[in-house]
């Protein structure tokens, strides 16, 4: 437990910063919703002038963009992007931090197994993300009730908000694998930004090309907000794919980390 608390404390500052950033992004979007919805007709005309492929790439759907949930799901594309960077950052840091800051010798000469270390670090990262999502979710609900013009489905709203956590968990797992495999990561942010944006662009291309198979390659597209808006649920296939991906990534990380040589500086 001591490692868990130590790690959680270490993530405290970054968790707070990222939570604030996510909330700020959300507030920024939602606060323009009332004016945006009032002038729906003008905006529709304006947006229709854009090529359709651009609109799909940006995740705009004119059918529902002017409803609260539709607008919220559009803003989520950016919020989830930020959230993914946060999760990837934590994931990549988990092991690489100890190597880069050369504290691995300290931790690994203590009477604990490497499995215990990974479990503790993983749990701390997981709890950080849960806390971020709880704070974010509460703020989002409050904001929504402030700007709503008509009633909306709470269940759909919650499901939409949870897509943040959903994508974050995938990137967390991905980050851990990278952190365990790569021998020394000099800059966490570079690695996580590069990875996250690569997947983001794959997702964008997938959106325009309308290719179902490409969806599997971008965790961002595992949650299709349009589908949630229609069905008030997630797509089972992608839930399973995501779960499998996370389980495999974490299992691989445990195995590699347990067998890894920790070299002197």
């Amino acid at each position: 437990m001591n490692i868990f608390w130590h790690e959680l404390k270490a993530y405290r500052k970054s968790t707070i910063t990222w939570s604030i950033s996510l909330i700020a992004m959300m507030v920024l979007f939602m606060s323009i919703f009332p004016t945006f919805a009032k002038d729906a007709a003008d905006f529709t005309k304006l947006l229709e002038g854009y090529p359709e492929s651009l609109r799909t790439a940006l995740g705009m759907n004119l059918d529902n963009l002017f409803t609260l949930l539709g607008f919220y799901s559009y803003s989520l594309t950016f919020i989830v992007l930020i959230g993914a960077i946060q999760a990837m950052n934590i994931g990549v840091s988990i092991v690489s931090k100890e190597i880069r800051e050369k504290t691995a010798d300290f931790l690994l000469t203590k009477p604990v197994t490497r499995t215990t270390i990974v479990t503790a670090k993983l749990s701390a990262a997981f709890v950080s993300l849960i806390l971020t999502n709880m704070v974010y979710g509460a703020a989002a609900l409050m904001m929504a009730s402030q700007v709503k013009l008509e009633d909306y489905s709470l269940q759909t709203f919650v499901l939409l908000s949870l897509s943040l956590l959903f994508v974050q968990l995938i990137f967390l797992a991905l980050g851990i694998v990278i952190s365990v495999v790569v021998r020394k990561i000099k800059s966490v942010l570079t690695v996580s930004l590069a990875t996250v944006f690569t997947f983001y662009f794959i997702g964008m291309i997938g959106g325009t090309a309308d290719q179902e198979s490409l969806r599997y390659f971008s965790p961002f597209k595992y949650v299709d907000t349009a589908y949630i808006l229609q069905n008030s649920s997630y797509e089972t296939t992608y839930l399973i794919v995501a779960a499998a991906l996370i389980v495999i990534a974490i299992a691989v990380s445990y195995i590699i980390y347990s067998k890894k040589d920790i070299h002197a500086v």
């Binding site: 800051e101 010798d105 300290f106 009477p111």
Partner: peptide, 13 residues
């Protein structure tokens, strides 16, 4: 390791 004390040549904390 419960009974080992280790001091490396370069310490990092």
């Amino acid at each position: 390791k419960k009974q080992i004390g280790y001091l490396p040549s370069e310490v990092f904390y």
